[in-house]
Amino acid sequence: MKATVFQELLKKLNRGESPDLVLSAENQTYIRKFAKTDRLILLGCGHVSIDVYRLAKTIGFDVVAVDDRPTFANFERFPDAQIICDDFASAIETLRITHRDYVCVLTRGHLWDAQCIRTILSGEMPYYLGLISSKKRAAGLRDILLEERFDQEAIDAIHAPIGLKIGAMTTAEIAVSICAELIQERHKQFVKPRENELTQTNVDFALLKYLASSDEPRAVVTVLSSTGSTPVKSGSMMAVNTLGHVAGTVGGGCGEAAAINKARRMLGKSDQAVLRIDMSNEVAADNDMVCGGSMTVLIENIT
C-alpha cells in the first residue's frame, strides 16, 4: 500500500470529511470508515475542565475551551485545544453549536451556568449537553427555565448532574465520570456496519501521520474480523517498523505480539499477508494469556 493513501485520508479528515479506506484480501473487499472527529465544547476552564480536556483528547474529541478569564483560557492550560476567551454568551454565538456537538457547562458559578444554558437552549440543541451541579441546583434551574417557557424536551435532555454515577470525588475522578458519559452517549449513535464494513471508525491521527510519512520501512496491521472475547473489534489498526516499535494497537498481549512478529518478518519481502490468530489455544494458555477468542489481521507493507 502506498503512503499517499494515508496522506489523502489525512487531507480529507482535515477538511471535515469522513473518508473510507478500501482494503482487499483473499478475494474480498473491506471498508474501513473514518468518522468525523466530534467537537467537545468546555464552557469554563477550571480544574475539572483541564482533566476533562486531557481525557477527551485521548478518546478522540476535538476540544474547544471557553472562559472569560485570560488566566484560565489559554494554550498553556489547554495546549491542543481551540481557545476562546470571551464572555460565554458571545462565545456560544461564535461557535454556532449544532446537533453534532457535545457541550459541558463547567463554569465557576450559578449565574454563568444559567447564562450558558439559556443561550444554548435559544439555538440549535447539541447532541449532548451536560451541566456540573448538584441535584438540587439542577432541579431549581429546570423549574426556572420552564417558567421562562424554554422547550421542556430540550430541558429534560440536559445531563444534570453531569457524568455517570461512579462516586467521583476528586477533579480527576469527576472528569472520568464525565468522559465515561460522553463515550456512552457517543455509542448510542452507533450504526451496525454492513457486511463489508469494519466496526471501528475512530481516527488515530498520530498513527495515520506515521503511516503517511516516508521515513522508514513500516507495515500496517488491520483487524479484519474478531470472535469471542478479543480486546478489539474489526477495523483496529497498528503500524510496525523493523525494530518492532508500534503505533496504535490491535489489542496487546499474545495476539498483538504475533502480528508484530509476522509484520517484522515480511517487511521488505512480501506486500501483503493475512494472519489468523487463535488466543484460546494451548500456547496462549501456557503463557497465561487466554482471551478466549480469535482474530484475523491483514498486514501490508507501506511504500
Rank of each mutant, 00 (worst) to 15 (best):
residue 208 L to H: 07
residue 113 D to N: 11
residue 112 W to G: 10
residue 142 R to D: 12
residue 172 A to I: 07
residue 228 G to C: 10
residue 282 E to F: 01
residue 14 N to T: 06
residue 85 C to I: 01
residue 300 E to D: 10
residue 131 L to K: 08
residue 70 P to M: 10
residue 196 N to V: 13
residue 243 L to W: 01
residue 132 I to N: 13
residue 77 R to S: 10
residue 219 A to E: 08
residue 88 F to T: 05
residue 160 A to R: 06
residue 68 D to M: 02
residue 301 N to W: 00
residue 187 H to T: 05
residue 40 L to C: 13
residue 107 T to P: 03
residue 146 L to I: 15
residue 31 I to H: 12
residue 109 G to W: 02
residue 4 T to V: 14
residue 107 T to Q: 04
residue 22 V to G: 11
residue 26 E to R: 14
residue 154 A to G: 06
residue 125 M to R: 12
residue 147 E to T: 09
residue 88 F to P: 11
residue 273 A to F: 00
residue 261 N to C: 01
residue 113 D to H: 08
residue 254 C to S: 08
residue 71 T to V: 07
residue 234 S to G: 11
residue 244 G to S: 07
residue 231 P to F: 01
residue 69 R to E: 12
residue 230 T to I: 11
residue 158 I to N: 04
residue 249 T to G: 01
residue 2 K to T: 11
residue 276 R to M: 02
residue 105 V to D: 11
residue 197 E to M: 04
residue 32 R to T: 04
residue 24 S to C: 05
residue 37 T to P: 08
residue 159 H to C: 04
residue 115 Q to H: 06
residue 84 I to K: 13
residue 32 R to C: 13
residue 94 T to G: 05
residue 84 I to F: 07
residue 277 I to V: 01
residue 197 E to F: 03
residue 42 L to Q: 04
residue 125 M to Q: 15
residue 97 I to K: 11
residue 84 I to A: 08
residue 96 R to W: 02
residue 63 V to N: 03
residue 86 D to T: 03
residue 85 C to D: 03
residue 274 V to K: 03
residue 112 W to K: 15
residue 150 F to R: 10
residue 21 L to G: 08
residue 259 A to V: 00
residue 174 I to T: 04
residue 88 F to S: 11
residue 2 K to P: 08
residue 211 L to E: 10
residue 72 F to K: 05
residue 205 F to Q: 15
residue 155 I to L: 10
residue 7 Q to M: 10
residue 90 S to Y: 03
residue 63 V to Y: 00
residue 6 F to S: 06
